[in-house]
């Protein structure tokens, strides 16, 4: 976070100095494009594995909606193994979804239900295997004669000690939500933070949802988190954005993830927030997939809790 702050400060000061600085579109040769498979797969405790396959695109390739749809890959052979059993994932497509799964699928693809069901977007789901704590899952994808493998582990979740809400500043009915967390004594614990309001179908990530215990290994401490849903309402009062309001019921999902998976998400968010500017090292997001694909295969070990803001 600090680097992003520094980066913003540097850029704003540069632009302040060059008060008439200008930006224009240019066409320039960017070598190095390779057509690569992108694997976006996850498995969490009590849930089947879901794997989405797509292709990377040249930076100058068309970026219309059809190009986005054409990027998804179907027809691959996808299996997962827990060391004892192996399950071949079933390809489920959006135009043939099992009843009742439309909203989950819509959130997964980031498309409205009515749009999604008229498209042919496919995901691979392990109906024969669900995630269990303590197990390592190996993913194998075979596509166009190439094989890609990755492994992830579902470790024990870290429980939250307590949750509370307190008003922020001069507000009496708006504030952040707080948790008390006791980090286990071993180093390297990594977490993903998601929340939703009661009644919502899907969890949403906060703005900086991945963190590890580098700065608080073994400590018990309190921290606040914002309301990411409040930014979705274009008609919402901007002054209230980020806050939970008095009376909200918040469901928290704190998932434990592995070190290499954390490395992927840390670099991903760093790239999303600071990539492209001259003050950041150009960093490719590191994958845990072997065989030349991009993306991640991640196991989540979630801990759920509920807070009523009062």
């Amino acid at each position: 976070m600090e680097f992003r702050i520094l980066t913003k400060l540097f850029i704003s000061s540069m632009l302040l100095l060059g008060f008439t600085s200008c930006t224009k579109e240019v066409q320039i040769d960017i070598p190095g494009y390779m057509d690569q498979l992108v694997i976006d797969g996850s498995i969490e405790t009590g849930q089947p594995a879901i794997v989405l396959l797509s292709k990377s695109n040249n930076v100058y390739s068309p970026t219309n909606f059809q190009a986005y749809l054409d990027g998804f890959v179907s027809g691959a052979t996808v299996t997962i193994s827990n060391g004892v059993q192996t399950d071949t994932l079933t390809e489920i497509c959006s135009d043939n979804l099992p009843p009742g799964t439309e909203e989950i699928a819509a959130a997964f693809f980031g498309l409205p239900v009515d749009v999604l069901v008229n498209l042919h977007l496919c995901a691979y789901i392990s109906f024969g295997m669900i995630g269990e704590v303590g197990k390592t899952y190996t993913l194998r994808v075979i596509h166009n004669g190439s094989e890609y493998t990755a492994a992830t582990n579902i470790s024990s979740p870290t429980p939250l000690d307590s949750l509370y809400w307190k008003p922020e500043g001069s507000y009496t009915d708006r504030g952040f939500s707080w948790v008390k967390l006791s980090d286990p004594s071993q180093s390297g614990d990594s977490y993903a933070w998601q929340v939703k309001l009661a009644g919502m179908p899907n969890f949403k990530r906060t703005f900086n949802p991945f963190f590890n215990d580098k700065f608080f290994n073994g400590q018990t401490f309190d921290f606040a988190y914002e309301n990411p849903m409040s930014f979705d309402d274009p008609n919402g009062d901007p002054a209230y954005r980020g806050y939970y309001k008095l009376g909200d019921t918040v469901i928290i999902k704190l998932s434990k993830i592995g070190k290499s998976e954390y490395n992927f998400f840390e670099k991903k968010y760093n790239q999303m927030y600071s990539g492209g500017n001259p003050f950041a090292t150009p960093t490719n997001v590191p994958t845990n997939i072997k065989g030349g694909a991009l993306g991640i295969w991640v196991g989540y070990s979630p801990w759920f809790d509920t807070l009523v803001c009062q």
């Binding site: 040769d29 494009y33 976006d40 990377s56 999303m272 150009p282 997001v285």
Partner: peptide
Amino acid sequence: TLTLPSSWYVQEQNLLFNYGPRNSTRMA
């Protein structure tokens, strides 16, 4: 010279870039 993304891809609905070889792009 500088290093720019040569390709893009999507992960969890987020746009990510894959950079080309180090310092392979040259500014005007």
